[in-house]
Nucleic acid binder design. Sequence first.
DNA 1: AATCCACAGGAAGCCCGGGAAC
DNA 2: GTTCCCGGGCTTCCTGTGGATT
Length: 411
Amino acid sequence: MNNDIFQGLLKSSNIFKNKEVLRPSYVPDILPHREKNIEELASILVPALKGETPSNVFIYGKTGTGKTAVTRYVGKQLSLKGSELNRTTYFIYINCEIVDTQYRVLQNIANHFMGDWGDRIPFTGWPTDEVYSKLVERIDNTGGVVVIVLDEVDKLKGDEVLYNLSRMNNDLEKARTSLIGISNDLKFTEFLDPRVKSSLGEENMIFSPYSADQLEDILGERAKQAFKDNAVGNSVIPLCSALAAQEHGDARRALDLLRVSAEIADRMGSNVIMEKHVRMAVNKIETDRVKEVIHTLPAQSKMVLKAAVIGNQIFDTPPNTGDIYNVYKQLCMRTGMDILTQRRIADLISELDMLGIITARIISKGRYGRTKEIQVATPIEKIEEILAEDDIIPRIPDIRELKLKIQSRLL
DNA sequence: AATCCACAGGAAGCCCGGGAAC
DNA sequence: GTTCCCGGGCTTCCTGTGGATT
């Protein structure tokens, strides 16, 4: 009996050299196929190095097209060049998915400038306009150019912040600011206050999705740093690239695929990543996603999902909305959970459809109505397994009994 | 061609919790 | 603290509809 359980696990990996470079947060030094965008953004920002105000920029592109990476890269270079030329340039990056209110954005920016000032602005308590004037005061004191990046701007609550930030130059005497807004929602600008829209959109940049070939280059570049020599099978990188290219050319997805494939290969004690590991990774990523989605579902939605699962087992033909609703009602009665209306359940079914755990397509049965046919998209056992971990969802010991009950009620 | 099923899905409004403003 | 407002979950009521049946 060997009690040294960690010994085997501790054995150094045969595959990884540096796993960090595959993580989504990593900003690489080389960004293949984004030279043009880098150049464009740089030429927009270069006035900062001459002490002039750069135009505001709005950057649009789907997830995983390198928006954030390019922006951070250019920002880094800008700060470097700035200190080299003895020009005060600040580059502030804010992710609006995390910092999403007017107050917190202003406070966050202001606290970048406390170095010689010392006093922090508390995360709550002050009136918002006081935070604003403090911010103006601090920025003015730097006497330089401040570039503010708002990543995922569409997640921001209200456009007041954008308005205030975009007209901040009016309140500044010695310093200047410019804004970069990043979004993956093109429609976002339509809902903006026209004044904000025009000032934020002085310059527009669009990041197009990567093609499979381009993804190959990106993965190849990272693989060199991440893996030991000869650890990657020939067809692995092309395969990962092709798979990711199918879904709107998302580089993050491609990298995830490669990383998870490598982890699987590593765990299986293989010295080299092979195609089969990639196939397994596709599966793992998908089931992890489904698991996550189901776990975070609200109770009523879980109940509807359970009803859909049972419905698919009870009925001979694919169940429709009404069938699912009947099953759902039975489930609720067993648990004492509130029974919602069919209208609401129809919406919940649509949501589950959007999330990709079930498929619901509208069909017409002529005389016998128009409804949605509902099928469970993921393997039923897998969903049952995940739902079983939840104590809200009733276990149904005898499906036949339930079946009879529902059938008799229908007649 | 007209009918009519079993819903889809839009519109309006209620209720409630949480956060901002006073 | 109170008041106000907003958004999300939900209900009620509604109109619209593809195509088998009559």
